[in-house]
Structures are given as C-alpha cells and as structure tokens.
C-alpha cells in the first residue's frame, strides 16, 4: 500500500524543502524591494496554480484569465472602498462573483473545442477589462482605484512586506497541498483523462462538460483570490494590470514551467515575474529580451522547463550507470 501513495509522498518532501527555502528567504532578505518581488511571485503563483489545473491537467486553454484576477481585485477594492465591507468578506464575494462569471461563460464556452474555447475566453477577458476602464463611477476608470485598505487580523495589520510575504505564501502552500490532493484523486484523474483523450474519458463515464466547468470555476476562484490579495497588497489597482497581456503572461507561466505539473506553475511564475528585475540592465528593451526568451524556451523545451530538466537529469543518470 505504501508504494501506491508514493508519488504524492515525493511531492510532500518537495513541498517541505520549498517551505524551508521560503523560511530562509524570509529570514535573510531584509531588503523590502526584493521581498516585495517574492510577494508578487506568490500572489501570481496562486492564480497560475489554478490555470495550471485548467490547462495542464484538463487541457483547456483560457486566454482571458486576467479577467478573474481583475474581478477579484476590483471586488475587493470596490466593496471595501465604496461599501465599507470587511476585506475578507469582500474577498469571498470576489470569489463568488468570479465563480458565477466562470459558470456563465463556461457553460457555453466549454462546449467549444480547441481554438474556439481560447477565443471565447479571450473575448471575455477583453470585455471585462473594457468594463473596468469604462465603469468609472465604480472602478475609477483608466486611472484606477486608490486607497484599498490593508488586510488586518484582529489587531495585527499586514502592512510590512515580511508579514504579507508570510500570509501570501502560507495561502499558496495550502492551495498547493489541496491541488496536489485534487490531481491525485478520482476527480483529478477525471480532469487528466479529459485533458489526455476526451472521447476515452467519456467512455469511462466522465461527463466532460461538467468536469471542464468545474476546473474552469476552480481556476477562476484561484485567480480571483490572487487578485484580492494583490489589491490589498498594493492598495491601488488600475485596468492596465488586468489586460490581455496579463492573461497571456499567465498562460505563458504555465507553459514555460511545464504543463501537467503544479511545480511547473510555480517555477514558470517565479521566472517570469522576476525576469523583468534581472532585465533592468536592458532598461527599456526588457520586453524585447522577454519575447526572445519566450520563443527560445518554447522552441527548445516545448514540454516546459520542469519536464525538460527531468529528462536531462534522467539521461545523465542513464549515462552514469551505463558509462
């Protein structure tokens, strides 16, 4: 019986190492600027984790996930500023709204195949973003929403980088554990089955429409939660942060890290969020290098960095034992 759950045991060990790594970062990095980068990675990673479930496991591409990220952020912003709602309640409302929107869009969109689903989500994402821009009385229009309150717990305010760092990454770790459990459960198997061979999944009794809808909603809720965390962290949001480019970046993070592995989502996010920091030496031309890196990684490692590294490692080991 031990062997059966072996695969997830490795994941737990990986997670343990990762937590230790986070502790080291939190302990040794005193510079708030770098700590903030790690906070942003954590926030984005939560959203990308959800998208990874959708893309890497269920095989459905969404080019409009920034909409859910934005819905979360704006729900938090609007409900706390205009209606004085408790931030946690606002966060929860954001997730509920995102889930509802995912249901409304997903019900017809997920019947579409391949390219068409990507297109429908793309259209949805852009429409939502235009709404953020144009519903100025609620959203503050193109210039954005200012003065979103910080999160508080009893008397403690999450106003320092290190406190938010701990909060965000704790949430990430919890979601990562739940997601790992999910993909290694009958539900997760059904998602993976439909991502691998839809007709065969149906032949195994999986209602693929419902299954797709469920993953889509889960991924929307993750993105929404991430958006709320973002809003309460930077306390200022504007439509530009949730546009088409943002959706594209999220898809890219999943693909670069590697589809079909949740660790890939984490790795892809870490690389792409921190990349601009390394590229500041190129000043204005960082986007150019960013594009170049995307192209090169996708050409030479189409299965993503995680799988490619595993392969290289295996080959290396093979040579060791045979050489």
């Amino acid at each position: 019986m031990n062997i059966h759950f072996g695969s997830i045991r490795y994941q737990y060990i990986g997670l343990l190492f990762f937590v230790i790594f986070l502790f080291l970062i939190g302990f040794f990095i005193k510079n708030d600027y770098y700590l903030n980068v790690f906070v942003l990675i954590g926030i984005q990673a939560i959203a990308v984790l959800g998208l990874s479930l959708l893309m890497g496991y269920a095989g459905q591409v969404s080019l409009g996930h920034a909409a859910f990220y934005g819905l979360g952020a704006y729900a938090s912003g609007i409900l706390t500023i205009h209606y004085g709602l408790n931030p946690y309640l606002a966060m929860f409302c954001g997730m509920a709204i995102s889930a509802l929107m995912a249901l409304i869009v997903g019900l017809p969109a997920l019947r579409l195949k391949g390219h068409y689903l990507a297109m429908a989500t793309l259209g949805f994402g852009i429409i939502i973003n235009i709404c953020f821009k144009e519903m100025a009385s609620l959203t503050g229009g193109p210039s954005g929403l200012v003065g979103i309150p910080m999160l508080k717990f009893l008397n403690f305010t999450f106003d320092t980088s290190i406190s938010y760092f701990c909060l965000v990454w704790s949430i990430f770790i919890i979601l990562m554990v739940l997601s790992l459990h999910l993909v290694n459960s009958p539900f997760g198997r059904a998602f993976r089955a439909l991502g691998s061979h839809e007709a065969a999944a149906q032949a195994m009794g999986v209602n693929t429409h419902i299954a797709k809808l469920i993953v889509f909603i889960i991924s929307a809720v993750y993105a929404s939660l991430a958006g709320s965390l973002y809003a309460h962290f930077v306390t200022f949001i504007s439509p530009a942060s949730f546009g088409f480019i943002c959706s594209i970046k999220m898809v890219t993070m999943v693909a670069i890290g590697g589809m079909g592995t949740l660790w890939g989502a984490l790795l892809g996010t870490s690389i792409l969020v921190s990349l601009p920091e390394f590229l500041t030496v190129f000043s204005d031309y960082d986007v150019l290098v960013y594009g170049l890196i995307l192209i090169i990684v996708m050409i030479f490692m189409p299965e993503g960095i995680v799988q490619a590294s595993i392969k290289i490692f295996r080959n290396f080991k093979y040579k060791e034992t045979n050489g």
Binding site: S185, P186, F187, R189, R192, S196, H197, A201, M204
Partner: peptide
Amino acid sequence: ALFTNMSVIENVLMGVHLHTKA
C-alpha cells in the same frame, strides 16, 4: 486511447471510479 499522462493503474482506476462515489 489510453491516458498517456497517467500510469497503467491510474488508467484502470478511471474505469473503477465509474462505480465508486468519491
């Protein structure tokens, strides 16, 4: 039409799950 991203037993489990409520 095997689920190539899964192990053999996971493929077979897909069949079993038809009758186990999770």
